[in-house]
Design a protein around this nucleic acid. Structure first.
Length: 426
RNA sequence: GUGGGAGUAGCUCAGCUGGUGGCAGCACCUGGUUGUGGCCCAGGAGGUCGUGGGUUCAAGUCCCAUCUCUCACCCCA
């Protein structure tokens, strides 16, 4: 070996065994999205750097130090999906097509963070957004959709919701909170001392025990909500109850991105280590206008696919069906039989069957072993003997029953007969 | 960016206080069955013990450096 090349830090291969889990998750998610009337939108993975700076927030860690930016070209690998989606929404004036747009997108995001459990530098999200509606019932419906995806994957989580208020009421709260924190500056952890100045809301969800204790008696954002925000938050709760979605209100929950307003929520999972949020989102009224679009409000969420996979592997309730089995494995013995088999396998595939064979000229024993590895339902054994006698052996791999299969037909008829005999399940 | 833990076969790992790399398990290949998978039995293949330096008669084992992985802080899906 000249030089050992491996995947770069924080980037991971998803091997076949795990990929079936990913396929399952995507399939379930798409199905639920479609049930809720969402349409897929596919977006580029790079945008002008400016887009993220303006949406996520200039002062956030993401923009400040975690973005993969090609400085000379002024472009950046997207660290999240919402900004790109809104850019596309605005660019193509999608609001003119219908007043309320429900969109979802699935794909990789990039952040230059230190990898740990449930956190990678390239990670994947299921992202959904509702644009053009600000009714609290819409918030509830979107949250209920995420809840349904998790439920159908068999993943157990706790849903926490909060309201971050709006530009009318948040400044007053922020001011009061800072005033409160200033009184305890000496007792706060160093990080929180820093946060008090830069992002005081972040102190509310500090993990430090002492900070938690101090913050327990801090002013509550919920007491500061303006009448509109207060009514909105109450209604979201009532609506979630109608939809039978369990939740708890957590006034200490804050979100990292600057654009969030009003409703925010997180789906928390045990078994995920420190990165316990498997999904999260919130409302972002005002953001679209801020990006140069029409004055429309919006709300969205993202589910972390790596975290979903982790939970699927760890929670016994989360299961998915194994990969589909091969319908038939053709075991050929001898050159002539191999040629005949290859043509047959090809015709079977044209008919929609999952068929395979081995081209190594290996022993029957080895070939049947391989059929077993494919979890083939049937094996068709064709040797030069069989060609001569015009009769192959069809072996049911489950019950080991073997029946003769006539080879004295024309090619098309032969594959049709076989297809009929083994009755593929899908 | 800051800490802790770990790197021995494709995978999971033994290897005690330095003394020849493991009949180890799984997986793989071959044979037991002149052409019949899974179970069993026998055999085989597979390693510069992450890398570089040092101590020593002798290093997988001790020391230093470095790389990688991992968990946590931070941040967040």
């Amino acid at each position: 070996m000249v030089l050992k090349i491996q995947a770069i830090q924080g980037f991971k291969d998803i091997l076949p065994g795990e990929a079936v889990c990913w396929q399952h998750i995507e399939q379930v998610a798409r199905d639920v999205f479609h049930r809720f009337g969402f349409s897929e939108i596919r977006l580029p993975m790079m945008e002008e750097t400016e887009l993220f700076a303006r949406s996520i927030g200039q002062a956030t860690d993401i923009v400040e130090k975690e973005m993969y930016t090609f400085a000379d070209k002024g472009i950046t690998l997207r660290p999240e999906a919402t900004a790109s989606l809104l850019r596309a929404f605005i660019e193509h004036s999608l609001h003119l097509l219908q007043p309320v747009q429900k969109l979802y997108t699935i794909g990789p995001m990039f952040r230059h963070e230190r990898p740990q459990k449930g956190r990678l530098r390239q990670f994947h999200q299921l992202d959904a957004e509702i644009i053009g509606a600000d009714e609290p019932e819409v918030d509830a419906e979107l949250i209920a959709m995420a809840d349904m995806i998790l439920a159908e994957l068999g993943i157990r989580t706790n849903l926490e919701i909060n309201s971050l208020g709006c530009p009318v009421c948040r400044p007053a709260f922020r001011q009061q909170l800072v005033a409160y924190l200033r009184r305890y500056t000496n007792e706060l952890c160093p990080d929180c001392r820093r946060r008090t100045g830069s992002n005081p809301l972040r102190v509310l969800d500090c993990k430090n025990r002492n900070c938690r204790k101090l913050v327990a008696d801090s002013p509550s954002i919920l007491d500061f909500l303006c009448p509109d925000c207060g009514r909105h938050f109450e209604a979201v709760g009532r609506s979630l109850e109608r939809l039978e979605v369990d939740f708890t209100v957590n006034r200490f929950m804050v979100r990292g991105l600057d654009y969030y307003t009003r409703t925010t929520f997180e789906f928390i999972a045990a078994d995920l280590g420190a990165q316990s949020a498997v999904g999260a989102g919130g409302r972002y009224d005002g953001l679209i206008e801020q990006l140069g679009g029409p004055p429309l409000s919006g709300i969205g969420f993202a589910l972390g696919m790596e975290r979903l996979v982790l939970l699927m592997q760890q929670q016994e309730t989360a299961r998915f069906s194994p990969p589909v089995r091969l319908d038939v494995f053709v075991a050929a013995l001898g050159r002539e039989a191999a040629g005949h088999s290859q043509a047959l396998v090809h015709r079977l595939r044209r008919q929609g069957l999952k068929a395979a064979m081995d081209h190594g000229g290996r022993s029957l024993k080895a070939q049947l072993k391989q059929a077993g590895r494919f979890d083939a339902r049937y094996a068709l054994i064709i040797g030069d003997n069989e060609l001569e006698r015009k009769s192959a052996v069809l072996r049911n791999m489950t019950d080991q029953q073997q029946t003769p299969f006539p080879l004295n037909l024309d090619a098309a008829e032969e594959s049709r007969r076989l297809a009929l005999l083994i009755q593929p399940t899908d």
